[in-house]
């Protein structure tokens, strides 16, 4: 299972990096979205995918999933929501101001070096 997940995570990261490197502003945003999904699954997989019960105290269950990665991911999910929203607004405000979404044209001019 971990092997499958690792490959899946690799694909997610590949797609994310490819999108981030593209010239379209919107694709960069989509890329960061994919990147955070990949990161969440990565943390989960590194911790191990075994465990037959959720990490909630129960009379019968003894083989819990590892709660720590889950707690870390929960934080990460909410943060990535905030960051995605921020990036989204940053992107469309940039587009509104500069009338372009071509990343190749967005560079500081020499006067401001």
């Amino acid at each position: 299972m971990e092997l499958l997940m690792a490959i899946l995570i690799g694909v997610l990261f590949t797609a994310a990096v490819y999108l981030i490197l593209s010239r379209s502003l919107l694709k960069v945003i989509l890329g960061t979205g994919l990147l955070s999904h990949g990161a969440h699954l990565l943390i989960l997989t590194m911790g191990g995918l075994g465990g037959s019960a959720p990490p909630v105290l129960d009379k019968e269950a003894t083989n819990f999933a590892d709660p720590l990665p889950q707690a870390l991911i929960l934080t990460a999910i909410v943060i990535s929501f905030g960051v995605t929203a921020f990036m989204l607004v940053l992107a469309y405000r940039t587009y509104g101001e500069h009338k372009t979404d071509n990343m190749n044209l967005m560079r500081g001019n020499d006067e401001h070096d």
Binding site: E2, M5, A6, I7, I9, G10, V11, L12, F13, T14, A15, A16, V17, Y18, L21, G38, L42, T45, M46
Partner: peptide
């Protein structure tokens, strides 16, 4: 991108 993907897979 593929380089990063492979790296992450191996690290995982």
């Amino acid at each position: 991108a593929i380089g990063v993907g492979i790296t992450v897979t191996l690290v995982a």
